[in-house]
Amino acid sequence: MQTHDAYRRRLLQAMAVLPWWFSRRAAAAPIPDAARIIALEWRPAELLLALGVTPMAIADAPNYRSWVAEPALPPSVLDVGLRNEPNMEAMQRLAPSLILLSEGFGPAPASVASIAPTMTFRFSRQGDRPLAVARQDIAALAGRLGMPDRAQRHMADLDRQLDQTRQRLASGSLPLPPVLLFSFIDSRRIMVIGKNSLLQDVLDRVGVANAWDGEENVWGSATVGLERLAQFRGVRALCFHRGAQDPLAEVAGSTLWQTLPFVREKQLRVLPAVWFFGATLAAMRFCRMLGQAMEPRA
């Protein structure tokens, strides 16, 4: 009888801690298969790549390669249609473990929740700058995937890159001119990057002024006619080129282009594409380019 009672007490004690044990396991459990994640917008795709995880599929892969360019997508990454209208049937067949979205662009989480769990990110939040939000998002995604150490290492790399670029720029003998950041949409319109942008956060950190002081949207950009650039003098213009689709070669022969002050003053620098609405990897890519683009040319 005593043996039976002792066994019964031990069994009851074990059953009492089972709910606690299972709740701890559930809270700590990462996404079961990080290799089966779909990113329906390019910023979440970048967040994933920053953690060293390749998405199974993204939306609009061809335009990713033009507008984002780096980090490059491996050939294994599948395409699931447009960012604002992804192919639901294709996603169902892929059976993802997680779907990443951006708030304010693309489908609502409820529309894809039947396919897989979702995680949504915002470009900026009230009171927080885009780069600060990107840091928060990297940490949140790393937590969801059970990879907090990767996020910490990545953030250390980001800070190191920003500090090195600031030191490099500060070591010059001449004052740094303000920069005008833009990319062509077509032969008559450009997208100019303003002070609410991710790139502005990089400029602030490395000590370079942004020449644009006009209108901009919540993502820190504005679409304007090419003629608006004629008002900027004494600036260094950084034009982000989108490869074969970019109309710069066509525009460069026009009279308007040749009369722009920064063209006449040889203060134009043509740079590879950077995703203006990205996160930490886009900030690091711009940082590397900026360090070289601000050096004077003989």
Rank of each mutant, 00 (worst) to 15 (best):
N217P: 12
L260F: 02
F184K: 01
M191I: 15
G225V: 05
D204R: 14
G207A: 08
P261F: 03
R264T: 10
A211C: 05
T259W: 14
N217L: 04
V235C: 05
C239A: 13
S183K: 15
W257G: 02
P247E: 06
R233T: 12
I193G: 12
C239P: 03
V202H: 11
E216R: 03
G220M: 05
D204F: 07
P247F: 13
F262Q: 01
N196H: 15
A252E: 09
G234V: 07
M191C: 09
T255C: 11
L181M: 10
L229S: 00
G220E: 00
M191Q: 11
L181Q: 10
D186S: 07
T255P: 09
R264W: 04
E250G: 14
L226P: 02
N217H: 03
R233E: 12
N217M: 12
W257Y: 05
T223L: 15
V235T: 04
K266R: 10
T255Q: 14
K195S: 12
C239H: 09
V251G: 03
I185F: 13
L226E: 02
F262H: 05
G253S: 08
V235D: 09
R233V: 09
V218M: 09
A222C: 06
G207E: 04
C239L: 13
V251F: 01
Q200F: 06
S187I: 13
G234F: 04
I190C: 02
I190M: 05
L260I: 04
F262K: 02
A237L: 06
V192I: 09
K195F: 03
R189M: 11
L238S: 00
